[in-house]
């Protein structure tokens, strides 16, 4: 029993800091890549098509998903677990809508002759695909954490006092939203 309490205490103390430092690492990863875009553009590698409208839609979708998840957390704090489940489910659905919207963005680019690789590609076009794909790769981690939260909610594992897992998941989810907004603005004002 004492052992379990000790482990719980450590988890409580360290879960959020572990996530924040992991987020710092991810920030540096994307900072490295977006800096690379800026350096590459010194060689005159720009895109001459407007950004896909789908990317704008994605931006609204991911912001909406953050809001719904946040409302879910507030509901858990108030003990309204039914609403919380619904919010997390909506967030999950929006995450898949986001991915579909990104896919549509890529299709638009492809049809306008903007390729990820090959002789017709440029470093800017490759960066565009790569950055969006890497964002989705990180989003997959967020979706896994959403699924865990959803199943735990269904199994009544959270209470109005005990919801650390939700807090960790939501922090990461908000970060993913913020990261996408940064990338979107970067695409709009630097690459395009």
């Amino acid at each position: 029993m004492e052992n379990i309490n000790y482990k719980e205490e450590i988890k409580k103390k360290t879960s959020k800091p572990l996530l924040w430092i992991a987020i710092m690492s991810i920030v540096m990863f994307f900072a490295g890549l977006t800096s690379a875009v800026v350096v590459s553009q010194g060689g005159g590698s720009f895109l001459d098509v407007p950004m896909p409208t789908a990317f704008t839609i994605s931006t609204f979708v991911i912001i909406a998903s953050s809001l719904s998840f946040h409302y879910g957390l507030i509901s858990i704090k108030k003990g309204k677990f039914g609403i919380a489940k619904l919010c997390v489910l909506v967030t999950l659905i929006l995450s898949f809508v986001f991915i579909a919207s990104q896919w549509m963005g890529w299709t638009y680019l492809y049809e306008n002759g903007i390729f990820a690789v090959g002789s017709a590609s440029t470093s800017s076009s490759s960066f565009l695909y790569l950055l969006t794909a890497l964002h989705i790769a990180h989003l997959v981690g967020g979706i896994v954490s959403l699924l865990v939260v959803f199943f735990k909610l269904n199994k009544n594992k959270y209470s109005t006092e005990k919801y650390l897992g939700v807090q960790v998941s939501i922090t990461y989810w908000h970060f993913l939203g913020g990261l996408w907004v940064y990338l979107y603005l970067f695409f709009m004002y630097i690459i395009a």
């Binding site: 990863f29 994307f30 490295g32 890549l33 690379a36 690789v117 590609s121 490759s126 790569l130």
Partner: peptide, 24 residues
Amino acid sequence: VLSFPVLLSAALLLVMDRSFGTSF
């Protein structure tokens, strides 16, 4: 934690150039 991710990004671009025909 602040510098190794940047090396990872460099290596990723290198892998893309080596294996997928990009021109970073």
